[in-house]
Design a protein around this nucleic acid. Structure first.
Length: 459
RNA sequence: GGCCCCGUCGUCUAGUGGUCUAGGACGCAGCCCUCUCAAGGCUGAGAUCGCGGGUUCGAACCCCGCCGGGGCUACCA
């Protein structure tokens, strides 16, 4: 029975890495008929906020990465919010204490800090002194609980990197319960994984070095270890450094929705960041990903996030959407336009967008009034000729196209000599959809008045 | 500092001793198409496989060292 999970921490906006990890977990769960759980890791009382939890739900749902068990939908191992499982951690800590596998530590943060600085000054690797194990100070009430690291090799299998081995003699006794009674991540996470019967722990590479901590705890508690671990490569920023919320806006999942990235395109891109199918296929449906994904084709090195490639994939998805679906998705991005207008614009927009928000730039002239450009005499002549024929033309794209081509032919000049001045007059820009679309999308009176305004003709 | 992971075109990557004069994709350049911009088609530039030693008839692929990047080493997660 495959059971996987993600355990995001609600300490800010929903993070790109959360989506990536969720995706790999779901891919693995679906391929193996397993269960995917969402567990909220809110043990950092200072930084955690309920509204951030909502942001995680929203972003994951937007991406179609839904969970089988979670705080909002329950499940056989509820509750799924760690702040609601405090008793469980207390029991486990008490058990370790009773077994002599953990002990109370009365050291103050200042004392610990001094120890650490001392070690640093003497250039030796820092490990907690075990003062409170051997010679605890008396008359102090506030304490943390430390795990007594047994020492020796800790070995485990990583589905991506193979056999891993850590020397736990290098690991000092670490805190598992804070002085405020809350468990530390290193404690709550393995306890929950064991109790919730998580079979495969799939998470980011930043947790690779944490795994021995978790394993030692699971062993000490007498639980069965998860069948396997998988540590996914980190997503790096464009500059090769780890993505930070401050420096790199692309960590914010909400941004992608706002910009008009299609969730399925983002998923596709994320899947390809750090993994490849071994074939030349680049575009995948979700089901194809489920089928193709395997941990032995996951990259070991961190992968840099690249907007260009994402834009290309997103454009591919947009072009593959049928027109009605595109209209539907475009609506939130074009609040100034009615559905019928969007529908008429779609054929011209489709190949011109990397993301849905681009439509607004292309169609801006429909709800704003661009300033009249100053045109050369020759260009003005072209505009006047166009006005003359356009006056009697039924206002739809094909008719406009035909009559304008007539003007072009009569002029003996290239089409651009006629179309560009019109484009400038109507949109104020040098870039727009084809001129017939550009005109037809606008009410005839508006289009004509913009042309007349430039040509100096009074309506 | 210690421990761990990693290092192929700008980027994502293929590649597990000879088929590599290192393949693909994005991006970039040029051409075609064309009313602009895209899309599409074609062509092209771009990597002495981080560096230095080995092993081998032969190494991007195996071994060692070095350098570089990242992670962990918190009463953050």
């Amino acid at each position: 029975m495959v059971r996987v999970r993600i355990a995001p921490s609600p300490t800010g906006f929903a993070h790109l890495g959360t989506a990536s990890t969720a995706l790999y977990n779901i891919l693995f769960a679906r391929a193996n008929g397993g269960t995917f759980a969402l567990r909220i890791d809110d043990t950092d009382a200072e930084r955690n906020r309920p509204e951030y939890e909502l942001l995680i739900y929203e972003s994951l749902r937007w991406l179609g990465l839904d969970w089988d068990e979670g705080p909002d939908k329950g499940g056989p191992y509820a509750p799924y919010r760690q702040s609601e499982r405090l008793d469980l951690y207390k029991q486990h800590a008490a058990q370790l204490l009773a077994d002599g596998k953990a002990y109370r530590c009365y050291c103050t943060p200042e004392e610990l800090d001094a120890e650490r600085k001392q070690a640093q000054a003497e250039k030796r690797p820092y490990k907690y002194s075990r003062r409170c194990l051997t010679n605890p100070p008396t008359g102090r009430a506030e304490f943390t609980v430390r795990f007594k690291v047994p020492g020796g090799e800790v070995k485990f299998k990583d589905m991506i990197r193979g056999d891993m081995s850590f020397d736990s003699d290098l690991i000092g006794d670490f805190i598992i319960v804070k002085s405020n009674g809350y468990p530390v991540y290193q404690f709550a996470s393995p306890v929950d994984d064991a109790v919730m019967k998580i079979s495969h722990v799939i998470r980011g590479e930043e947790h690779l070095s944490n795994t021995p901590y978790h394993l030692m705890l699971i062993d000490a508690l007498g639980y069965e270890r998860p069948t396997a671990y998988a540590h996914m490569p980190l997503i790096l920023a464009k500059d090769g450094t780890k993505m930070s919320k401050r420096k790199h806006p692309e960590t914010n999942l909400a941004l992608y929705r706002e910009q008009g990235y299609l969730p399925e395109a983002l998923i596709n891109y994320l899947a390809l960041l750090g993994w490849n199918p071994g074939t030349s296929q680049e575009i995948f449906t979700f089901d194809e990903l489920v089928q193709a994904f395997s941990f032995d084709r996951v990259q070991h090195a961190g992968a840099r996030f690249d907007w260009e490639k994402l834009n290309w994939i997103n454009g591919e998805y947009i072009r593959r959407l049928d027109d009605e679906e595109l209209v539907r998705r475009l609506q939130p991005f074009l609040p100034n336009l009615d559905e019928a207008t969007i529908r008429r614009a779609v054929p011209a927009l489709k190949t011109r967008m990397a993301k849905l928000a681009d439509a607004a730039t292309l169609l801006e002239y429909l709800w704003t009034n661009p300033p009249a450009p100053a045109l050369e005499p020759e260009a003005l002549e072209r505009v006047r000729a166009a006005i003359a024929v356009l006056n009697d033309v039924p206002w739809e794209q094909q008719a406009i196209h035909d009559s304008l081509m007539g003007v072009v032919e009569k002029s003996g000049l290239g089409p651009n000599k006629t179309f560009m001045p019109i484009r400038l007059a109507v949109t104020g820009k040098k870039i727009s959809p084809p001129i017939d679309y550009t005109l037809a999308l606008l009410p005839k009176e508006v289009a004509m008045s913009r042309l007349q305004r430039v040509a100096g003709v009074t309506a």
